[in-house]
Structures are given as C-alpha cells and as structure tokens.
Amino acid sequence: MSQAAGGYYLPEPSKWPIIGSIGLFLMTGGFGLYLMGMSMITMYIGMAVLVYMLFGWFGTVIKESEGGLYNDQVDMSFRMSMGWFIFSEVMFFAAFFGALYYIRVFADPWLGGAGNNLMTHDWLYPEYTSTWPTNGPGNVGGDFQTMGAWGIPAINTLILLTSGATVTWAHWGLKKDNRSQLILGLFLTVALGFLFVGFQAYEYIHAYNDLNLKLTSGVYGSTFYMLTGFHGLHVTIGAIMLLVMLFRSMKGHFTHENHFAFEAAAWYWHFVDVVWLGLFIFVYWLV
C-alpha cells in the first residue's frame, strides 16, 4: 500500500532496514575482530554496506518527499522523531558529563582523602594530593599540560556560534524563497563546520606532540578526549548533513513551507553547538 486512504503515507516493504542491520553488524563485529587481532576488512565491508544503505534509504525518502507523498501529519512524525533522537543524543553526552562531574566533585577528592576517605589517602596514596586536572595517583601517562581555554577553543566557540547564525540566516533565505541566500548561508555553515573540525584536529596534534596530553593521560585525558572527541564526531556528522542539504538546495529541492530535512539538520547543528558550550565551560574553562 503506498498511500493510506486517510492520507498518511505508508511505505512499501523496504530492503534498506535489513541492509542497515547487516551493515551495523559487520561494522561492529568487524571492529571486534580487529581488536581480537584480525584484519579490519570486515569492518570496512560493514561501513560500505552502511553507506550504501544511507544513500539508498535517504534517496528513497527524498524521492518520496519531492514526489509530494508526505502530508503534514507525516511531517509532524518526522519532527517528533528528530526531536526525540536529539534528546537521546543529549542523554548520551550526559553520561560523559556526569562522569566528568563525578570524577571532579567526588572521586578525585576522595583519592586525596576527602570525606570519609582519609584512609584511602593514608593507606594507599600517601603521596597524592587531589587536583584537577589529574592523571591519578599512578601518574598514568606521565606529566602533561592542559589545553588553555582562550586559544583555539575560544576561536572554535566563535566559529560554532557564527555557524549557528549562518544556518539560521540560510533558513530565513529558504523561507523567503531566496535561493542564493539559502545556498550561501549553508555554504558558510558547512565551511565553518569543517574549519572547526580542522582546528580541533590541529589541537589534538598539538596536545599529543607538545603537551603530552593523550587519551591515556589518566582520567583527565579520558574525559577530555572522550567528550571533545564525541563532540567532534557529531560536528562532522552535522556538517555532512548540512553538506547534503547544500547539494539538495543547489538541485532545487525544498520549498519555503516544505523543507523539514533542512530543519532537522539545523536542529542537529544547534544541538552540537549547545554541547560545545557545555564543553567549553566544563572541560576547557573551569579547570
């Protein structure tokens, strides 16, 4: 059935989900095999399958959307889904922010003997004083320096904030049916996104080479890289999403009232932006 009588579009049976499952399975399983000492080939196959699925699935959706099959109610389903999906992402980051909070407020002071942990300190780590940043009483990974907030991170903050503005500007353009404003705004946003990623890569290289700040630098390194790393990954994904929107805009997709795909990417972008502000404050600034 292609179309319910009530107008809510119900898709035909589709091969894409099962292909997606196989792709995920091969990718994760293949990575597992790699960690077990085997080659990465299974993982690459899985990734290729996933990419194939993404093209196919989204391609179908785009065709359906451009074909005018989606009514307002379908549109609302998409909106809700994207919103709740972003909420789930927020909770994923919350786990890591929670870990950071717990380590800074509880665990590390306890290692230094705070609270009812005097004996933890006296018996196990008489030498250790609690500080942040720390790589623990074992000085895991050796001495390191931290990344100051007011260098690249501050620039990156500006970049992301600006990109939030450009994407909104692009949206205005779309709503006014001003294609060139849409395309220019999107282009700027994507460019700023990749610039951000570039700066972050530079920052990582600097941290590894000059500051001896590594993923293995105790719990500071763990929280620093996991939080900023996952954020960076999300920026990359968001930028790719926006890039797709850019191409679609150039192909003449979207109308001033029907362009949820664009909005979804923009929401995602704002979410990435907000997470960055949290990072900037709790990871870089308040050390």
Binding site: W110, L111, T120, L124
Partner: peptide
C-alpha cells in the same frame, strides 16, 4: 564492598 583503589571503612 572492597573496591580496588579505594578504602572503605
């Protein structure tokens, strides 16, 4: 509980 790396009283 006996937690590695921490001392409980």
């Amino acid at each position: 509980d006996a937690i590695p790396g921490y001392v409980n009283e």
